[in-house]
């Protein structure tokens, strides 16, 4: 555990909680892609199956359980409790275009051809693109609520911090995981355009709206 890793995990946790609280407090999931949230629930489910097979640390187990629990709670709020506020007309990204190729790639490029390892690899690849339906929704509506942009910012910072974590681990532990690193770089790049808008608009007190 290093400072980048811990800060990354906490940033990830902050993102998840910001989104849950936003939906809960406003009693609305307008502007939120339910499809991205389903993908994240799928990511956590397939990645953390090792909860059942190996114990790493209390911290590790606790965070995994919280991430999974929050992911399903978010999906529940969007598709059940506050379904009436769900922006289904704009949330039209075709997720099969992500899930199918990512599933195929996980079968082809993995560390070990075993069920748990393939599912872990699938979750890593899927996470790297799971935000696309959300970014697609924002590009369709042309705007995002400020709280939604804070959520996205924390989520992007989490992955960027993990890149520093991997640099740290490479230098000080000789550890590197090519699958995680390549997927992590892809994931971080997807946020770059958003980071730019966040810094130039949201941090200056403006609402994030895209030019028509």
């Amino acid at each position: 555990m290093n400072i980048f890793r811990l800060a990354g995990d906490l940033s990830h946790l902050a993102a998840i909680i910001i989104l849950l609280l936003k939906i809960w407090k406003t009693r609305s999931c307008a502007g939120i892609s339910g499809k991205s949230q389903i993908l994240f629930a799928l990511v956590f489910t397939t990645r953390y199956l090792d909860l059942l097979t190996s114990f790493i640390s209390l911290y590790n187990t606790f965070m995994k359980v919280v991430y999974i629990g929050c992911a399903y709670a978010t999906v529940y709020l969007i598709y059940m409790k506050f379904k009436a506020t769900y922006d289904g007309n704009h949330d039209t990204f075709r997720v099969e275009f992500l899930v199918v190729p990512v599933g195929g790639l996980a079968f082809l490029v993995n560390h070990d051809f075993s069920p748990l390892e393939i599912l872990w690899t699938f979750s890593i690849y899927l996470e790297s693109v799971a935000i696309l339906p959300q970014l697609f929704l924002i590009s369709k509506t042309g705007e995002a609520e400020t709280i939604t942009t804070h959520y996205l910012f924390c989520l992007g910072v989490y992955r960027a911090l993990y890149l520093f974590n991997w640099i740290w681990r490479f230098y000080f532990e000789g550890f590197f995981d090519m699958i995680a690193i390549v997927a992590g770089v892809v994931q971080t790049i997807l946020y770059c355009d958003f980071f730019y808008l966040y810094v130039t608009k949201v941090l200056k007190g403006k609402k994030l709206s895209l030019p028509a």
């Binding site: 890793r5 995990d9 990830h12 090792d50 190996s54 790493i56 640390s57 590790n60 965070m63 995994k64 991430y67 560390h111 070990d112 075993s114 748990l116 390892e117 872990w120 993990y162 974590n165 550890f175 995981d177 699958i179 995680a180």
Partner: peptide
């Protein structure tokens, strides 16, 4: 067998 070291990350 698999090197489980990458599984200590979230």
């Amino acid at each position: 067998s698999t090197d489980p070291s990458h599984h200590d990350e979230l």
